[in-house]
Structures are given as structure tokens and as C-alpha cells.
Design a protein around this nucleic acid. Structure first.
Lengths: 336, 336
DNA sequence: TTGAAAGCGGTACCAC
DNA sequence: GTGGTACCGCTTTCAA
């Protein structure tokens, strides 16, 4: 018993094509790459025919070795289950594909998988550039500079020395969201954010409140997940000083907050209003639909790959403005 | 003005390491790959030191060219925005990483991007294997056999000639879901499914009904998206013969159905109960939480990768049983 | 235990 | 317009 297609079936190479078409390997190259030398139409046809017959496809590894680049970008994301990163991945893929690049995306939510090792892994695979969607720490920065591969930070929240980055204006975004809640007349506005070092969004929340002469409502930090948001929501509901509105720093967590409120029998937005951050597609289909501060993911992704494709000397930080998407969870009712 | 790091900085190669360590290139190879020849401890140390100093990392393209494989798998998915495929991608990545493979995932929801061309694109990049998560058609099958790359079909619903595949038992799954609704006492059970050729789940829905002596409720086909589900939900709500329960063929669409019901002011599950299919993480956080027929994504992904890593001769179809996850949308109330 | 050298499959220069 | 050929960086056999 043998394999189904009995043929030993070595894949056809440039040399096979050349032999079949009766030309030199060089000419095959010229035809395939439409250059750098011109090829006579008749010869060209013969080569094309040979390629068709032999089912020839150029070996990407050989080409990469010779010309020194792979036409692949690496993408590092924290958690590919987060709808925001899902959306980011989508637009990144579309843009990269449009430029002829494929994406290797690695996420480091697995065990023993941190950002730095993900970066090194990608470097080994000779990607032409990397897009890192994570808060960078020192080891990460070291990994980036060591590997010597052009990298752009996305979803980064402030300038980082020596590495170009693009990210949303978190501070203004948070203020916009909170201000909308204030506009609705709320005076006790809570906050749900990630664990870890204090976030710019939290500052935005606090500053918006202060500017309006309000004091900060209760805040809860939780894991960056639906579950985390759920736990945080429960905490806020049980708070002695239960807020009448909550600003959540991500859609991902907001979904969990919504669930906590529903389970507690709290009417949204009448008893507690919610505004979140990100503007991912999932936010449109929660109940009630989330009013959310939207990041311009597509634009940011585009700039990120553009910066990889056509590197400029500048390594500055592009800060993108956010946009408030008004739906129902804030109390604005159905759109007209 | 020059680049920040003035060095021309050619990346160190095996030859540089050899020179620095005062050994031959071969020895560098032996050290790096721990074989196939042994290296004297002292020499080994010298080489390691040189590698460290020079920041040497082997060139993956050259290695791939030489040994003939890339340690990369290609993954083809229809829509990376669908939470089911998100989850699939996650587990696929974890399993593949565990086996030392990286993933290039392409999705063909973009313009001019069909399955066949995605497959060819991956073939060009010399992936060692492919996982295709799509209903395959003739052109797809042709693309697969032409490119001569080991492929396993995942999320496939029946055996396909000559290509190994793994998928859930859609028919039994659908019956399970519908039977649960029947158990709840419903007699008018509607269906929401994808556009296109009639689906096995639809048959499961119909057969379960028939077996219980019931007639099929209204059915609506819609785009495979949240929006599609929303539209289908609206249609069913407006139906002259409005069902008291709906079986939705995917969580993705069910989210939209839920929204349509909420907007129509219909109580879920009291006025209309809902059971869906897939069991993606998102389904746990809808309101009310979706009772759903869960696919064993992790197991299926694992088998798919395993079949690529250690190809067996068999090209059969592994059908996985599904599991009913009871939550609230069916009428079962809060868990104890 | 180490080294020399033959490729892997392309690219593109240089000569014709 | 075409062909010969020297590399790209690595793996591995074979000889020392």
C-alpha cells in the first residue's frame, strides 16, 4: 500500500521549468518576476506554459534567503479572545494583505508566553517587521532593540523612546465618555478598569469629574476579561455608595458589568447607566446596546503597517482622537 | 543625519560566529542544533559565547530552504470576526505553538478573497500544512490537491473524498438543542440559519420536530453575522405564525436574534425561548445567557494539528459529539 | 571531535 | 533577449 498519489512528486523547481521550456533558469526568473530583464513574448509564453504544465510555484524560502526579506509581518497581541484585538487583527490583516504581506500573529495569553519571548520567536522567523499591541515594559523594549527588526507599537498610550507608536487618545476619550454621563445628570459615577498600574483612562475619569465639581465614585479594578468585568460590576453594585453610572475602560469588561447589573435586577440605563471604551463590534449587540468611546482601529492599523512598509526616520507617537458612539446604555434612548 | 544606531549592522551569520569562535561553520551548526555530531564541551562554550556576543540568530529562511520545511501551518477561516472562529484560532494557536509551529492565518471575508486563492497564497509561502475551516467546494478541493500540501478540513460537516477532516456532529447537535426546547413544552419552534444550501442543522431541527409529532415552525435564512441574525429575528417576530421558541444555528447570529427580540419588547425566555449552536465564549455573556449546543473546539483543533504534525494514512472524517450547555435563554432559569 | 564542501531554489549581474 | 553563474545562510555527509 502506498500513498494515494503514487508519484514521488518532488515539487517542480525553476530548473525543471527551464529544462521543459528549453530556456535558462535566468529567463524563468525574468518571466516570473517580470524583470529585471525583458523577455521575448514567444519565450515568455513557452515559460508560462511550462509553469502551468509542471505546476511550478517559486519557493518562498529560497527567495527570502536570496533577497533578504520574507514579506511577512509579525503581530503580538495579549489576548486574541478580546473583541478589540479581534477587530484589530482583522483590519491589520486586510491592510497587510493589501500590501502583499502575510501576518504571523502570536498571542501571549498562554503559559510561559510573555511579550519578549513572543518577539524573539518572531525574530527567528525573519519577519520583516513587527506590530506589538501591548503595554511595553523594559524587557520588551530590550527584546525589540536586540532583535533589530523594525517595530511599531500599536495600542500604546504614550510616546516610547526610539520606537514609533500609534494609539488612541485615551485621556481625552475617557473624559468624553465621562462627560457624557455628567451631561446626563449623573453625580455619582463609578469606574471599572484593569488591574495593574493606574491607567490614563482612570485619570481621565477622575479629571472629568473634578472639572465638573464632582467627587470620584467607587472604582473597581479587575482582570481584563468578561469575567473580570462581571466581578467588578458585582463589587460596584454592592458598594455602600452605589453609583448611578459607570464608566468602563473596555467593551470586553463592560459586557461583564452589564451581566452583573442584569443579574442584580438593576435597570440599565435607568438605575445605572454605562459607557465603555473601545467601540468593538460586539458592543453594538449587547443589551442594552453599549454607548462607547470608539477607537479608530482601522486608521491606526493602517498607519502601523504603512510605517512598516515605508519606514520613515521618525519614531514619534501618533495619537488618534476617539469618537463617542451614542447608543442606549447611557440613557440616550433609541436613535431617531 | 544618519539612522539612530549608526552601525551598518549586517546581521551576524553562522560564518561570523565560526570566525569569532575560531571554529568551522559546521561546528556552529552542531552546537546550535545539538547534533548531528557531538561537540567538545570547551568548544561548545566558545561557540555559545560567540553567539551571545554577536547576537547571532539562525536564518529561518536558509534553514527552511535546506531542510525543506518551515515549521509553519496555514489556517484559512471565513470570517475572523465570528466568535466561533476567534475561539478556534485561539486553540489552534495554542496547540500549534506547543508543537513548535507558527500559524499564518488568512481569512477570506475581504473582497476578491476566496478560499481557493487563500490556499494558493499559503502554498506559496511553503507552509508545512494547512487547516481549512470552511465548507469546501470543488474549486477549493482542486486548489488543495494541486498544491500538494497536507491539509485537514476542520469545521467540516461530512466526509470529503481524499482529505482528512474533523467536525462536530451537527445533526445530532441540532436535534439535542431542539429536543430541549420541545422538552420545555414548545410546539411552535422556529429556525434561523445561514443563507445558502440547506444545512444539516436545519435537517436536525426539522427531524426533531417531526419525531415529536410537531410541524416545523417558521424558518429564516440570513447572512452569517450578528446583523444577519438580527434581521432574521425581526422576520420571525413579525411572522403570522410567531414561534414561542427559536433554534439558531450559530451563536454569532443568536446575538442578533436576541437583540431583535429585546427591541420588540419580547420577554426571553418567557415569550420566546432561544437555543443556539457553537458554544463560543461570547454566548455566556449575552442577556439572558444563551443556552447553546457546544462544539468541542479544543479537541477538534488538537486533532487537526496532530494530524498535520504526525500524518497518518487515513483520510477519514472525525465526527465530534456536541454538548448542550444549559443557561437561561431556553427557560431553565438560574442555575442552582 | 572537527573541517571542507556540496547543495537547497532563487536572483540578478555580466557577458554574449 | 538570453544564458552562465556566483552568491544568500544553513545542514549534513564525508574525510581527516
Amino acid at each position: 500500500m502506498d500513498t494515494v498519489d503514487g508519484a514521488p512528486a518532488r515539487r517542480a523547481t525553476r530548473a525543471d521549468v527551464a529544462r521543459y521550456a528549453g530556456v535558462s533558469p535566468a529567463v524563468v526568473s525574468y518571466t516570473v518576476n517580470a524583470g529585471p530583464r525583458a523577455v521575448a513574448p514567444a519565450t515568455r509564453e513557452r515559460v508560462l506554459e511550462a509553469i502551468r504544465v509542471l505546476g511550478y510555484r517559486p519557493n518562498a524560502a529560497a527567495r527570502a534567503l536570496k533577497i533578504g526579506h520574507t514579506k511577512m509581518f509579525g503581530v503580538v497581541v495579549p489576548d486574541s479572545g478580546n473583541p478589540f484585538f479581534v477587530e484589530l487583527g482583522r483590519v491589520l490583516e486586510h491592510t497587510a494583505t493589501a500590501h502583499g504581506y502575510a501576518l504571523i500573529v502570536v498571542n501571549f495569553d498562554g503559559p510561559g508566553h510573555d511579550v519578549a519571548s513572543s518577539i524573539r520567536e518572531l525574530a527567528l522567523r525573519q519577519v520583516d517587521g513587527m506590530i506589538v499591541a501591548a503595554q511595553v515594559s523594559m524587557p520588551t523594549l530590550n527584546a525589540i532593540s536586540e532583535c533589530g527588526i523594525r517595530t511599531v507599537l500599536i495600542n500604546q498610550f504614550s510616546a516610547v523612546d526610539g520606537v514609533p507608536s500609534v494609539g488612541p487618545d485615551l485621556y481625552e476619550g475617557a473624559r468624553t465618555g465621562v462627560n457624557h454621563l455628567i451631561w446626563h445628570g449623573h453625580t455619582n459615577i463609578g469606574y471599572v478598569g484593569e488591574m495593574g498600574p493606574p491607567d490614563v483612562r482612570e485619570r481621565g475619569w477622575r479629571d472629568a469629574l473634578t472639572a465638573a465639581g464632582l467627587t470620584a465614585g467607587p472604582a473597581a479594578a479587575a482582570a481584563f476579561s468578561r469575567e473580570g468585568g462581571y466581578a467588578a460590576g458585582q463589587k460596584l453594585v454592592a458598594d455602600d455608595n452605589r453609583p448611578t453610572a459607570i464608566f468602563v475602560s473596555s467593551d470586553f469588561q463592560a459586557v461583564g458589568v452589564l451581566r452583573a447589573l442584569h443579574e442584580a435586577g438593576i435597570a440599565i440605563p435607568d438605575e445605572i447607566a454605562v459607557v465603555s471604551f473601545d467601540g468593538s463590534p460586539e458592543a453594538e449587540y449587547t443589551w442594552p446596546a453599549l454607548t462607547t468611546v470608539q477607537q479608530p482601529v482601522a486608521e491606526m492599523a493602517e498607519e502601523a503597517v504603512e510605517r512598516l512598509v515605508a519606514p520613515t526616520a521618525s519614531d514619534d507617537f501618533s495619537r488618534y482622537p476617539t469618537k463617542l458612539i451614542v447608543r442606549q446604555s447611557c440613557g440616550c434612548g433609541m436613535p431617531a
